[in-house]
Design a protein around this nucleic acid. Structure first.
Length: 285
DNA sequence: ATCCTATCCTGGCTGC
DNA sequence: TGCAGCCAGGATAGGA
């Protein structure tokens, strides 16, 4: 599902078509996509504003708006599970599962397409407060091995649910947590404050390496949902070590990859590369 | 503080 | 072939 690498890829690919353009009109085909605002309110807030910058924070794609050169709020796109962004010809009929369309000056439009309707496009006067409540960006300076060591020691939680918690660390989801934990040879049920400094350093490095490599490959596509705005699938799924590989051989040691449930999420591990912590009862699939 | 469950959704899949 | 039921999962709310 779209996690940091997929969201980063989408932001990069829509950026050249959006930056500098003005929003002309809004149509909400599924009103809940824009949440607390009605279509009319949303339109009033964004119409005529210029998209000054497109960037990413955690799993949000952020469109900074300006009017007369001054900040005029932000549009936050969250793809959740099946959301997609496409630049489309402005006048076409709504396509299947299109939930929102922002018509742009110049004739084209930004379309938000989402089969499962979980995705959201919000207008906020400022997202600063929302972003302050999120953990650091894993690929930025603030996320150091020392920070991670101290942060893990300040909590007493299983690694997987902690790494999925966006207020702890931003941008990871189910897939990249499983991949990073396998690469760091850490079991998802290991308790955060009990890791050695060496193990934490491994985890830190593997989180960064996994995400960077996935961005290089434009994310992962293993079902028909995630595509870049150009309609291309990512290719990182070919690098998966454990995710979705239950029943197959671990690429490092040959043992069979198993799937079980942690934090209500499908969790994939190699039992020989990722040794279970003592005294932990492993929940059943 | 942490964990667990339900909710939101659709479509693909399984099993009868 | 038809159809009911289950599953996937990011975020959040509410209860234990």
């Amino acid at each position: 599902m779209p996690e940091l690498p997929e969201v980063e890829t989408v932001a990069r690919l829509v950026r050249p078509d959006l930056e500098g353009r003005r929003v002309r009109a809004v149509r909400a085909f599924w009103p809940r996509t824009i949440g607390e605002h009605s279509e009319g309110e949303f339109a009033a807030l964004v119409s005529g504003a210029r998209i000054a910058r497109v960037w990413r924070r955690a799993k949000y794609i952020v469109l900074d708006l300006e009017r007369r050169g001054r900040p005029a709020g932000q549009i936050l796109v969250h793809l959740r599970m099946t959301g997609r962004l496409h630049i489309t010809p402005g006048r076409s009929q709504p396509r299947d599962h299109e939930r929102l369309r922002l018509s742009l000056e110049g004739g084209r439009a930004l379309s938000f397409i989402d089969v499962r309707k979980f995705g959201r496009v919000r207008f906020m006067h400022s997202a600063e407060g929302l972003f302050r409540a999120l953990g650091p960006e894993p690929l930025e300076e603030g996320f150091s091995a020392l920070w991670l060591l101290q942060a893990l020691r300040g909590r007493r939680r299983a690694l997987k649910p902690l790494l999925l918690d966006q207020s702890f660390l931003a941008g990871l989801g189910n897939i990249y947590v499983d991949e990073a934990l396998h690469r760091a040879r850490l079991h998802p049920l290991r308790i955060s404050h009990k890791l050695s400094a060496q193990a934490v350093t491994r985890l830190w490095a593997e989180i960064r390496a996994t995400l960077s490599e996935a961005i290089e490959r434009e994310g992962s596509s293993f079902d028909r949902f995630y595509r870049t705005p150009e309609g291309q699938p990512g290719s990182y799924q070919h690098q998966f070590q454990v995710y979705g590989r239950q029943g197959q051989a671990c690429k490092s040691c040959g043992s069979t990859v198993v799937k079980f449930t942690v934090a209500q999420r499908g969790t994939h591990i190699c039992r020989s590369c990722q040794r279970a912590p003592r005294r932990v009862i492993i929940s059943r699939p």
